[in-house]
Computed example of a mutant assay.
Amino acid sequence: MAGVHVVANQKGGVGKTTVTVNLAAVVADTLGGTADSSPVLGVSTDPQASMLEWAERAGNELPFDFEQCHDNPKLLGKLREIKQYSHIFVDTPGSLENESILQAVLTQADDVIVPLEPEPLSFNPATRSIERVIQPAGVPWRVLLNNWDPRDGTADLEQTREYIAAKRWPAFNTVIRHYKLHTRAPADGVTVVQYAKNRVALEARQDFFRLALEVLGTGGDGPRHASAVNGVSSTNGG
């Protein structure tokens, strides 16, 4: 049975698709997948189909299998029954209008990754997503600080960490830094494991490899319920 990892935040533009694609690519690369036989499936449930466009540009070079499923609720309700893959990574819509899709996917999830950009305007939408949809689903979840640009300094990053701590939200140790490589990748049809071999590309890849270790439960505490901050944790290595 595949481990189902859902990337969710009902605010658009927080990097859900980038996180989903690159995390799926890193896990597939780590597990030794090939273009003909991948242990990883990427699923897009977003009607805007950004992940589909990225996958089409990548073509046969995409290191994982892919399905666009926003109009296939029957499949969304059976993700955990798929035996062909070790891990399934699911991109979700960035809109409250598609809440039913997110709710359907959460019934299949082993854990949820909630990308949060380190800026105050991102706080309220993330809070609504967590409190209205994700927490009621009873699925282990963690917040991911995403798209932080070190050139902006650490003030916003620290403020966001303080907000997360005040909310007593579980969070990943990994922070995904902002790189132009990430914003160019969809248009170029490449994933993080296919970046050019130079210092900047190596740093960009390292963030996602660290995140993959945490998601798979081998480089951190593993997925946790919100109650984990009170000393009760639930680990699922996928």
Rank of each mutant, 00 (worst) to 15 (best):
G3L: 02
H5F: 09
H5S: 04
V7D: 00
A8G: 08
N9E: 01
Q10L: 15
Q10V: 08
K11F: 10
G12M: 11
G12I: 11
G13F: 09
V14A: 00
G15F: 04
T20I: 05
V21Q: 11
N22W: 09
N22L: 11
L23N: 11
V26F: 12
G32C: 13
G33R: 14
G33P: 04
G33I: 08
T34H: 12
D36G: 07
P39T: 06
V43H: 10
S44D: 15
T45D: 04
D46M: 07
D46G: 11
P47N: 12
Q48C: 11
A49L: 11
S50V: 05
L52H: 09
E53K: 07
W54P: 03
W54C: 07
A55K: 05
E56N: 10
R57V: 14
R57F: 13
A58C: 04
E61W: 03
F64S: 08
D65M: 03
F66N: 07
C69W: 01
C69Y: 01
H70M: 07
N72M: 10
N72R: 15
K74S: 12
L75R: 15
L75V: 13
L76F: 01
L76E: 01
L76W: 01
L79P: 04
E81Q: 12
Q84L: 12
S86V: 03
I88W: 13
F89Q: 03
P93S: 13
S95D: 13
N98L: 06
I101N: 05
Q103G: 06
A104H: 07
A104S: 10
L106F: 13
Q108T: 13
D110R: 07
D111Y: 07
I113Y: 14
I113G: 13
V114F: 05
P115F: 06
N124D: 02
P125R: 00
A126W: 00
E131W: 01
E131L: 06
R132H: 10
R132E: 15
R132F: 05
R132S: 09
R132V: 00
I134D: 01
I134M: 02
Q135F: 02
P136S: 07
P140F: 02
P140Y: 01
R142D: 00
L144P: 15
N146L: 04
W148A: 03
W148E: 04
P150F: 02
P150E: 06
R151I: 08
T154G: 02
T154S: 08
E158L: 13
E158W: 05
Q159R: 14
T160R: 00
T160M: 01
R161M: 01
I164C: 01
A165V: 06
A166S: 14
R168Q: 14
P170F: 11
A171C: 06
A171F: 05
F172R: 10
F172C: 06
I176P: 06
Y179C: 07
K180V: 12
L181I: 15
G189M: 00
V193R: 01
A196H: 02
K197Y: 01
K197R: 14
V200P: 00
L202Q: 03
D207V: 03
F208A: 04
F209H: 14
F209R: 15
L211M: 08
L211D: 05
A212G: 12
D221N: 11
P223H: 02
P223E: 09
H225F: 15
A226P: 06
G231M: 09
V232C: 00
S233K: 10
S233W: 05
T235A: 13
T235S: 12
N236D: 10
N236E: 08
G238A: 13
